[in-house]
Computed example of a mutant assay.
Amino acid sequence: MVENAVSPDPDLVRALRALSNPMRLQLLLWLREPERHFSAEGAIADPAEVGICVTHIRAKAGLAQSTVSAYMAELERAGLVRATRVGKWTHYKRDEQRIAELVGTLGRTL
Results as ranks from 00 to 15, higher is better:
2 V>A: 08
3 E>I: 15
3 E>Q: 01
4 N>T: 04
6 V>Y: 11
6 V>F: 10
7 S>V: 13
7 S>W: 03
7 S>A: 10
8 P>T: 00
10 P>I: 01
10 P>T: 02
12 L>G: 04
12 L>C: 03
15 A>Y: 05
15 A>M: 05
17 R>A: 15
17 R>D: 11
18 A>S: 09
18 A>N: 05
23 M>R: 15
23 M>A: 07
23 M>Y: 12
24 R>Q: 15
24 R>G: 15
25 L>I: 00
26 Q>H: 11
26 Q>T: 09
26 Q>C: 03
27 L>N: 06
31 L>E: 02
32 R>N: 08
33 E>L: 04
34 P>N: 10
34 P>H: 07
37 H>E: 03
37 H>Q: 03
38 F>V: 02
39 S>G: 06
40 A>H: 06
41 E>I: 15
41 E>D: 07
42 G>S: 04
42 G>A: 05
43 A>D: 12
43 A>V: 13
44 I>L: 13
45 A>R: 12
45 A>D: 10
46 D>I: 01
46 D>F: 05
47 P>M: 05
48 A>E: 11
49 E>R: 03
49 E>Q: 09
50 V>R: 13
51 G>S: 12
51 G>V: 07
52 I>D: 12
53 C>Y: 05
53 C>K: 06
54 V>H: 00
56 H>G: 08
58 R>G: 08
58 R>H: 12
58 R>Y: 09
59 A>S: 13
59 A>C: 10
59 A>E: 05
63 L>I: 12
63 L>V: 14
63 L>K: 15
63 L>H: 14
67 T>F: 03
68 V>M: 02
68 V>Q: 05
68 V>F: 03
69 S>L: 07
71 Y>H: 14
73 A>R: 15
74 E>L: 01
74 E>V: 01
74 E>S: 12
74 E>G: 06
75 L>R: 08
75 L>G: 06
76 E>N: 03
76 E>G: 03
78 A>L: 07
78 A>N: 11
79 G>E: 09
79 G>Q: 07
79 G>T: 13
80 L>R: 11
80 L>Q: 13
82 R>T: 14
83 A>Q: 09
84 T>P: 00
84 T>G: 00
85 R>K: 00
88 K>C: 00
88 K>P: 01
89 W>C: 01
91 H>D: 04
91 H>P: 01
92 Y>A: 02
92 Y>T: 09
92 Y>C: 04
92 Y>S: 02
93 K>D: 08
94 R>H: 04
94 R>Q: 09
94 R>P: 03
96 E>R: 06
97 Q>M: 08
97 Q>F: 04
97 Q>W: 02
98 R>D: 06
99 I>G: 01
101 E>G: 02
102 L>S: 02
103 V>W: 11
104 G>L: 14
104 G>E: 12
104 G>T: 10
104 G>D: 10
104 G>K: 15
105 T>C: 01
107 G>M: 07
108 R>V: 11
108 R>I: 08
108 R>H: 12
109 T>H: 13
109 T>R: 14
109 T>D: 10
110 L>W: 11
110 L>Q: 13
110 L>C: 05
